[in-house]
């Protein structure tokens, strides 16, 4: 059963993304695209002529996608949370290398920003994992999911996670890595056709990755987890529609100033 979920993971993420596009359009008082629009886009991209800059650039995107898929699979299989975070870091590094490997200014700028984003959110993710460990005594997701709800013991950590969710799903105010009006998509700019498809789908997997962290806060009650995910999903989209994009430096300041200190205060609270 788990394996079926793993295989279907990109599709699941695609549905979330499609739903989000509809939701966003409705929030902007538009009709918006159909729910299945991400899949139409996917199929169309498969049918384009493929133009590449050079082979490593194209292949790194493929590698990024598969490592990310592997990460999501590891989440479904209930592995060690720290391993999962580092696997995800590895996937990001592949992407960043891809961005750097071409002599394209926007791609480089995108990779720079992506690196800054990694530096910003990675410590918070680890702290969230440490928080789970302190309560449940294990980094294994299967064990974490057996504990009862974490959010009343780790409320500030939950807030910290909330702050970094927009970074991961590339939503305002933290969509600096993509920033269409500035760097035209950043790393993804030089991709087309099938290879862009991989990046397009890895966005779906990112959704699953970060929302599964939210889900973990529900603990043994899957209903609570689902409610939390739905709530965060709505909140993130609301914020997306009510904010402009901040600077990269501001993002780092916000994440280190608020998210990190919330997380530390919460963990110290648990410890002392």
């Amino acid at each position: 059963m788990t394996w079926i979920w793993i295989v279907l993971a990109p599709l699941l993420g695609g549905l979330i993304y499609g739903g989000e596009r509809v939701l966003r359009a409705r929030m902007q008082r538009r009709q918006g695209p159909p729910l299945l629009q991400p899949f139409y886009d996917m199929f169309k991209l498969l049918d384009k002529r493929t133009l590449i800059l050079h082979a490593p650039h194209a292949l790194l995107a493929v590698a990024h996608f598969f490592v990310l898929w592997f990460t999501v699979a590891a989440i479904f299989l209930g592995w060690n949370l720290i391993y999962i975070i580092f696997l995800h870091l590895f996937a990001q590094i592949l992407l960043i290398l891809a961005g750097y490997s071409v002599r394209s200014v926007y791609s480089h700028l995108g990779a720079n920003r992506e690196l800054l984003m990694v530096v910003a959110y990675e410590p918070v993710l680890i702290l969230v994992a440490v928080g789970f460990y302190l309560i449940s005594g294990s980094f294994e997701i299967t064990t974490i999911l057996q504990g009862d709800g974490y959010w009343h013991q780790l409320p500030l950590l939950f807030v910290a996670l909330l702050i970094i969710v927009p970074i991961k799903v590339k939503k305002s105010p933290f969509d600096i890595g993509e920033a269409h009006q500035e760097i035209v998509g950043g790393i993804e700019i030089e991709y087309s056709g099938v290879f862009y498809e991989f990046l397009y789908m890895s966005r779906f997997l990112e959704y699953l990755f970060i929302y599964s962290f939210v889900f973990l806060f529900g603990g043994e009650s899957y209903w609570l987890g689902a409610v939390l995910v739905a709530g965060v999903f709505l909140l993130v989209n609301l914020v997306d529609n009510a904010t402009a994009r901040v600077h990269a430096a501001d993002m780092v300041k916000i994440v280190y100033g608020f998210a990190m200190s919330f997380a530390i205060i919460n963990i110290l609270g648990v410890l002392l």
Binding site: Q28, R29, R30, S172, Q181, E182, A244
Partner: peptide
Amino acid sequence: TAENAGFEALFMQIMG
């Protein structure tokens, strides 16, 4: 200006 500042919803609102 709103669109270029990354505020898509505001762009849509003003265009509307």
